[in-house]
Design a protein around this nucleic acid. Structure first.
Lengths: 197, 197
DNA sequence: CAATCAGTTTAACACCGTTAACTTAGCCAA
DNA sequence: TTGGCTAAGTTAACGGTGTTAAACTGATTG
């Protein structure tokens, strides 16, 4: 029986099932097509069950957003440990950011409310995002020890170039191939990192 | 003939009323709150009337998007005529871009599908956007005459920095004041323009 | 056996985009 | 004057949405 099989699943499995299904639908059909009913359908439950795991659709989206920032944080910490040279660190982090956005665009979209994804919870209140932000700022600081204000400024510049190029690369992908965009991206990030010292 | 002209005029007025109302709601409550029913209510018509002017909500959003690019195009042409120095031209255009995004955020949002705005019509198919793109590329060319490919590349860089900083400034406005962001923006754009020669 | 309780579903509310079918008002010819 | 035609506009419906209260179901407990 479907019902019996379903009951075997733990609560945690159902929770991750909801998240995975939401991302699957978003990947295939876009975030505007993600609905509580579709998710419930896919995990063989009725819609109200989703609310046993997430207070609202907004909270569910925020959870996926957090997942994204947690993933990036782990990646960046890995890179931070792997390399000594701050220039290399920043370049590798830039690369990881691009790869993440291209391999999991649906997560990147919900992180920045792009393309139909819409989460009303302000991203700057997100602790996971703050952690990423702090980590990268500390790398920039290890590069050129300056006042906190200057570091924040440089981080904002780095983030803007990265996010701007990733966003536009996605928007213009039918006009300018992702390979071309990536090439420009990597060179720009290298130039930025080199320009710091 | 007179009757026909008047009819045309009132029809045009209703049309702009629909567009203005859509922008008003988006400005006050965000794009996710913009619905055909609310627009119809505001202009004292029933919902189907909106479809006499726009085939779908998508087309209505695309029209507002076009309006945005048309506005920018006019602004940029004005600047192009006003200044001789390409460096000054590019800097002034960057400033105009920032002002536009801050003064009419709801239009900027629909142009880039940000924050709940979602128009499925690909922006790169938009002729108005192409015109803006071409104009800025020609300014960069007048600056440093290089191969078409290089110009496209530099334009992509300029656009990315501009769009990235504007997007992030909006997202982080509660954390980093818009004045601070603007300062960084203007300096970055000046540096970019100066770096071209 | 009766009562309770967790787990789950049904049904409802107030919305949404969109469209078919209906009504109404104005005009013109008979 | 009256009948019919046309255009403008409305009503009502379809299938969808997020969300919640109420009902149901089945197992466990007193």
């Amino acid at each position: 029986m479907e019902v019996l099989e379903r009951k075997q699943r733990t609560r945690e499995q159902t929770r991750t099932g909801i998240i995975t299904t939401a991302k699957d639908i978003a990947r295939r059909e876009g975030w505007q097509a993600v609905s509580i009913r579709k998710i419930a359908d896919a995990i063989d439950y009725s819609p109200p069950i989703v609310y046993e795991y997430f207070d609202s659709k907004d909270v569910l989206l925020d959870e996926i957003r957090k997942e994204g920032f947690r993933f990036l944080h782990k990646e960046y910490e890995r890179i931070d440990k792997l390399y000594r040279d701050p220039e290399k660190r920043l370049y590798e982090i830039s690369m990881a950011q691009w790869d993440f956005a291209m391999k999991q665009p649906e997560i990147y979209q919900v992180m920045y409310n792009l393309n139909g994804a819409f989460c009303t919870i302000p991203v700057h209140e997100n602790a996971e995002m703050q952690a990423v932000s702090t980590l990268i700022q500390s790398i920039i600081f290890s590069f050129i020890p300056k006042a906190k204000e200057s570091i924040r400024r440089l981080f904002f510049e780095w983030w803007s170039i990265s996010h701007g190029m990733i966003s536009l690369a996605m928007i213009l992908k039918d006009q300018q191939s992702l390979d071309q965009s990536q090439q420009i991206y990597l060179e720009s990030m290298r130039r930025f990192a080199r320009g710091l010292k």
